[in-house]
Amino acid sequence: MAFAHFSIELLAFLFFIAIVAGFLDTLAGGGGLLTVPALMMSGIPPVAALATNKLQASTGTATASYMMLKNKKVSWGEIKPLMLFAFIGAATGTVIIQFVDTRVLSFVIPLVVFFIGLYFLVAPALDKQNNQAKVSAKKYQRLVVPSIGCYDGLFGPGTGSFFALAGVSLNGRGFIDATAIAKTLNFSTNIASLLVFLIAGQVVWALGFTMLFGQILGAWLGSHCLFTIKVKYLRYLVVAMCFAMLIKYGFTL
C-alpha cells in the first residue's frame, strides 16, 4: 500500500506512537496496547493491523536486544536456546490464529493481564535474585517459553511482561535480568509471527515502515534507561501498562 494513500498527519501520529511504544515496551512491555489500536484507527483490517504491528515491533525489540547483547547484559549462549523455543511457539500461535475466532481471546486475556499486574504490584523484592527457581531449566525452556511465544503469535499485547514475570517467578531471576532477557525472547517471537504474516500477505508496508523508525528510536532510549531506572518505578510501570490494557479491553468488549 503506497504512502500516498495516507495523510502526513496520520503518518506523523503513527511515528510518534511508535516512539512511545518502543520506549515503554523496552522498559515494561505492553507497547502493543498503543500501536495496535493506532493502526486500526488508520482504517486497515484487524488482522492487517496485527501483522503490521509485528513489522514495526520487531525493529523495536531488535534494537533492545542488540543493546542488551552489546552491553553484555545478556549472554548469547544462554538465550540462544530460549529464543529458538520462543520462535517455535510464536510461529505455531500465528499459524493457529489464521483459523481461530479471535473473540475467544477476549475472555481469557483480561484475566491473565489482571493477575500479571497484581503480581508485580504485591510481589516483594523484585530487585533481588530469587535463588529458588520454581521449575527446572529444561521445563522452563521447553514448556514455559514456547507457551508464552504461542500467546504472542495468537494475540500479543503484554508478551514482554509475561516473559519478565516468568523469569522472576519461575526461573529465579532478578527483575532487571528477567526484563533484559525478555527483550531478546520478545524479538524472537515477533520475528516468527512476522514471517508467517508475510507469507499470508497481511503486512501494510507503508504504515509499518513509518512506525519501525519510531520503534528504533524509542527502543534505543528505553535501553539506555533500563539499567538506570529504579526497580520500584519500573515495576509500577509494568502494573500501569497491565491495568491500562484491562481498561482498553473493557471498552472493546
Score class of each variant (00 low, 15 high):
V20H: 07
V20Y: 03
V20K: 06
A21F: 07
A21V: 12
A21T: 14
A21P: 09
G22L: 00
G22M: 01
F23M: 06
F23D: 06
F23C: 13
L24D: 02
L24V: 12
L24C: 11
L24H: 03
L24Y: 03
D25K: 12
D25Y: 06
D25H: 11
D25R: 14
D25C: 12
D25P: 10
T26C: 13
T26E: 01
T26H: 09
T26F: 05
L27P: 15
L27D: 03
A28L: 05
A28Y: 08
G29I: 03
G29T: 06
G29Y: 03
G29E: 02
G29A: 13
G29C: 08
G30K: 15
G30N: 11
G30E: 09
G30I: 10
G31T: 13
G31A: 15
G31V: 14
G32C: 09
G32V: 10
G32T: 09
G32L: 10
G32A: 10
L33H: 15
L33R: 15
L34Y: 04
L34K: 12
L34C: 04
L34Q: 04
L34E: 00
T35C: 06
T35S: 09
T35L: 07
T35V: 12
T35F: 12
T35N: 04
V36T: 12
V36L: 15
V36D: 00
V36I: 15
V36H: 05
V36G: 01
V36K: 07
V36F: 08
P37F: 13
P37Q: 14
P37N: 14
P37K: 06
P37E: 12
A38L: 11
A38V: 10
L39E: 01
L39K: 02
M40P: 01
M40V: 13
M40R: 02
M40C: 04
M40K: 03
M40W: 05
M40E: 05
M41G: 08
M41P: 08
M41R: 10
M41I: 13
M41T: 12
M41Q: 13
M41K: 11
M41Y: 13
S42R: 04
S42I: 11
S42V: 07
S42Q: 06
G43M: 06
G43C: 05
G43K: 03
G43Y: 04
I44M: 02
I44H: 01
I44P: 00
I44V: 03
I44F: 02
I44W: 00
P45S: 14
P45Y: 07
P46V: 11
P46Q: 09
P46W: 12
V47M: 05
V47G: 00
V47R: 00
V47E: 01
A48M: 07
A48V: 05
A48I: 06
A48C: 08
A48Y: 04
A49G: 01
A49S: 11
L50N: 01
L50R: 03
L50C: 09
L50H: 05
L50A: 14
L50V: 14
A51P: 01
A51V: 12
A51L: 15
A51W: 11
A51G: 12
A51E: 10
A51M: 07
A51S: 15
A51C: 14
T52C: 08
T52L: 08
T52Q: 04
N53G: 07
N53C: 13
K54C: 08
K54N: 11
K54V: 14
K54E: 06
K54P: 02
K54H: 10
K54Q: 06
